[in-house]
């Protein structure tokens, strides 16, 4: 029984680590601030959940309950940060237009959305 739990736990942790690794690779390979932000924040969220789930199977129940809080606050805080950084990046012109297929925010043309001359 513990053998099965160990294997499941190990699989969850490895999958979580793989997800985080892919996020890191994306951070290096993707072309723009916005896309890198996706790679930096999102696969980590899933990766963290998987690692937490794997950890929860190996620790006493009262510690596992605290891990729920970690997951919960990740869910609450991660979108706020990625939205703030993404918006700042866009407004400050850190997004090169050629990496976007369609940019309907620039099409409105009313905001300070144009990349400023560097």
């Amino acid at each position: 029984m513990t053998g099965v739990a160990d294997i499941v736990s190990a699989c969850l942790m490895l999958l979580g680590a793989l997800s985080c690794l892919l996020g890191a690779v994306g951070l290096l390979r993707l072309p723009s601030m916005l896309s890198r932000l996706q790679a930096a924040t999102k696969p980590q969220t899933l990766g963290l959940f998987l690692i937490l789930a794997g950890t929860a199977m190996r620790v006493p129940v009262d510690s596992a309950v605290t891990l729920v809080l970690v997951a919960l606050f990740q869910v609450i805080t991660s979108p706020v940060i990625s939205q703030l950084v993404g918006r700042s990046a866009y407004l400050s012109g850190a997004v090169r237009p050629e990496v976007l297929v369609v940019d309907e925010l620039a099409e409105r043309g009313r905001r300070a959305a144009e990349p400023p001359p560097q």
Binding site: S19, L22, V25, G26, R29, L30, P31, S32, L34, S35, Q38, A39, K42, P43, T45, L46, F49, Y90, V99, L100, V101, V102, D103, E104, L105, A106, E107, R108
Partner: peptide
């Protein structure tokens, strides 16, 4: 979260620096 993580990973591995995005209204 699961499906899209696979999608983002695919973009990273398949296209990498040539990945594209879009901003929608």
């Amino acid at each position: 979260l699961v499906v899209s993580t696979v999608g983002v990973s695919w973009q990273v591995l398949r296209y990498g620096p040539r990945a594209r995005g879009t901003i929608l209204e």
